[in-house]
Design a binder for these strands. Structure first.
Lengths: 186, 186
DNA sequence: GTCTATAGACAGATAGAC
DNA sequence: GTCTATCTGTCTATAGAC
C-alpha cells in the first residue's frame, strides 16, 4: 500500500501539469498550484525541494503516460502505417487544447530551451521519435526510418505552432490529412 | 530632424529585441534591458508606457525588417521558386541562433499564446505567409497557393522547434534540403 | 518659463524558499 | 506564515535648449 502522502503528491503533480501547460512554467507560481490543489503552500517543501523538482516530476509523469499510450497502440493496431496515422490523429483529437495552449511537448521545450533546461523536455520527443522510427522501419526499412520519423514529427510540431499562433484548428486538420496521405503512399 | 530621444528609444528597442529573443519576454526584466542599455530604469517610462509597449515596438520593428527583406528578395531574385528556396534557407543561415533560442517568431508566438497576447506575434507569420502565397501563386496557380504556403511554413516552424529542443542544427539542414527539393519539383 | 529628456529613489505586489 | 529578492510601474528632482 502506498505511503499516505503519495496521493497528495500526485495531486500536486497533476495540478502542476495542467497549469504548466495552460499558462506556461514560468508564469505558474507555486501559489497558483497551491490554490488549485487546495493545500497550503508551506506543504510544498515536504514533497518537493524546488519548483524545478515539481517540473521534473511533471515531465516524468508525461513520459510514462506517453509510453503507455504508444505501447497500447502497438498492441491494438496491427499495421505500422495505421499506428503512425493514429499518432498523427493526436493533433486533431487534442486540437482544441493545441489551439488554446500549443503542443504540450513543443511549447514546454520552447520555453525551457530559453533557459538552460532544454534537456528536460527532450525525453518526450525522444519517446515519440524512437517509437515512430520503429514503425517506419517496419514500413520502409531501417535505413529510411530515422529520416521519415523526423520528417513526420517536424510536420506535427509545425502545425501545432501555427494552429496555436493563429488560434485556428484548420492548420491541424489539413496537415494531419496531408501526413496521413503521405504515410499511406509510402 | 528627429527628436533628440529617438536614438535612445531605438537603442532600447534593439536591446529589448535581442533579450526577448534570447531569454523570452517573460524572463526579461526592465532592469535587464536597462543594464544592457546602460540607462536607468526610471527612464523607460518616458519612452514607453508599459513593458507591453516595448514589446509592441519590438514586434513592429521585426515586421518592418522582415518586409524589407522579402521585398529585397522580390527585387533581386527573378524566379518565384528561387525566392521560396531563399526563404527556406533562412533557417540554415540563422541556424546557430535557432538552435540556441528557437525561431524568433515561433518562440515568441508560443510564449505570447499562453497569455492572451497571441495576436501580437501573428503579423510576423502573416507577412511571411502572404509573401509566400504570392510566390506560390506565380508558381502553381492561385488555387493551390494558400495550401502550399501553409505547408511550407509548417515545415520550417517544425524544424525550428526540434532543432532548438535537441540543440541540433541537422534538423534545419535536412528539412531545408527536403523543402528545396519539394519546391523544385512543383 | 517651458519643453524634452534624464536620473534614481520609491511603492506595492508577488515570486520562490524555508 | 515569514523572509528576502525582484518585479513593474510611479514619483519627484534636475539639466539643458529655446
Amino acid at each position: 500500500m502506498p505511503p499516505k502522502g503519495e496521493a497528495k503528491r500526485q495531486r500536486i503533480i497533476d495540478t502542476a501539469n495542467a497549469l504548466f501547460y495552460e499558462r506556461g512554467y514560468g508564469r505558474t507560481s507555486l501559489a497558483d498550484i497551491a490554490q488549485a490543489c487546495g493545500i497550503p503552500k508551506g506543504n510544498f517543501y515536504f514533497h518537493f525541494k524546488t519548483k524545478d523538482d515539481i517540473l521534473a516530476a511533471v515531465v516524468a509523469g508525461r513520459v510514462a503516460r506517453l509510453r503507455d499510450r504508444l505501447a497500447a497502440w502497438e498492441r491494438e493496431i496491427a499495421r505500422p502505417v495505421d499506428r503512425l496515422v493514429r499518432l498523427s490523429e493526436m493533433i486533431v483529437r487534442d486540437g482544441a487544447d493545441i489551439v488554446r495552449h500549443g503542443c504540450p511537448t513543443g511549447s514546454l521545450a520552447t520555453e525551457l530551451g530559453k533557459e538552460g533546461n532544454a534537456n528536460l523536455a527532450r525525453p518526450l520527443f525522444r519517446e515519440m521519435l524512437d517509437w515512430s522510427e520503429a514503425q517506419f522501419a517496419a514500413l520502409a526499412g531501417a535505413d529510411a526510418a530515422p529520416d521519415l520519423a523526423r520528417r513526420m514529427l517536424v510536420r506535427l510540431q509545425g502545425a501545432s505552432v501555427l494552429a496555436h499562433a493563429f488560434r485556428d484548428p484548420a492548420w491541424l486538420a489539413e496537415e494531419q490529412a496531408a501526413v496521413a496521405a503521405w504515410l499511406r503512399g509510402l
